[in-house]
Amino acid sequence: MAKKVLVLAETREGALRNVSFEAIAAAKQLSGGGEVVAVLLGDAVSDFGQELVNYGADRVVTVEHPHLKHYTSDGYGQAFMAIVEQESPEALVFGHTAVGKDLSPKIASKLQTGLISDVTAIEGEGDDAVFVRPIYSGKAFEKVKNKEGVSFITVRPNNITPLAKEERSGDISSLSVDITNLRTIIKNVVRKSTEGVDLSEAKVIVAGGRGVKSADGFAPLQELANLLGGAVGASRGACDADYVDYSLQIGQTGKVVTPDLYIAAGISGAIQHLAGMSNSKVIVAINKDPEANIFKVADYGIVGDLFEVIPMLTEEFKKVM
């Protein structure tokens, strides 16, 4: 049966997020030939509507309100539920992002539905869709399906291929929603993430471990990451030693990432760290210890001192890019 699917699109630093285009592609598959309606919430977001259409949304509905400038589960929850009431969707797709993770359980609770979170692949379409998601931080996978009623998923960034962007046409409408009684007031957002590239969406990650030895030791890693348009990550060892903030930690506690290229520098490869990164498409290991566990999951390895290898790598990339 063809389904009407609502997608929650998100912006970050004045642009639509890639994961929103990926969510539209997921919704298309889930719709089984039905309709994909993208939802945009914010204080001034209607300008982004056409781009969502160009990425495959059949329609776009926006809610603009000063109370939606910052995400709160109350504000977004009220706006999203108003759209659900108007549209009566049969399926929902969010990105598995800070906003998606926080809001989706609330919406699922209100609709009394299941919620299959952190989906990395979809098999089949429409009612027969089966969702693949990592468990134990990627040590295993499970296939899950929705038993009945509205199906609701969040998709992990970087795993589902977006549709090609092309000139398409679709209706962009706005809905006026009264947003009241916010129980949370956002005071301030302190930007700590590096160079605006979010770890979970980065195509390239340069990660350091205890072998980086100090906070300053991360500078050459950052330089390489910047050159490749990527982000810096870290093992638990490096975070525990205070070289970098815990928000950069990759592993079974910390973030689970699946970039195209993961460069592990001075990381031994404890099982907890491997859980967080071993599903990356290509893994490069740089370590002084040829016996280091990280070489077992690496596609390419260099046995050597990261403080020699990383700057050489940066120079070499500069030559060819």
């Binding site: 800070a98 949370t184 007031i185 957002v189 770890l199 903030d245 928000s247």
Partner: peptide, 12 residues
């Protein structure tokens, strides 16, 4: 923590 950034908020 919101994807590496720190959000400060007040609630009750």
């Amino acid at each position: 923590d919101i994807e590496g950034d720190a959000e400060e908020l007040e609630t009750s």
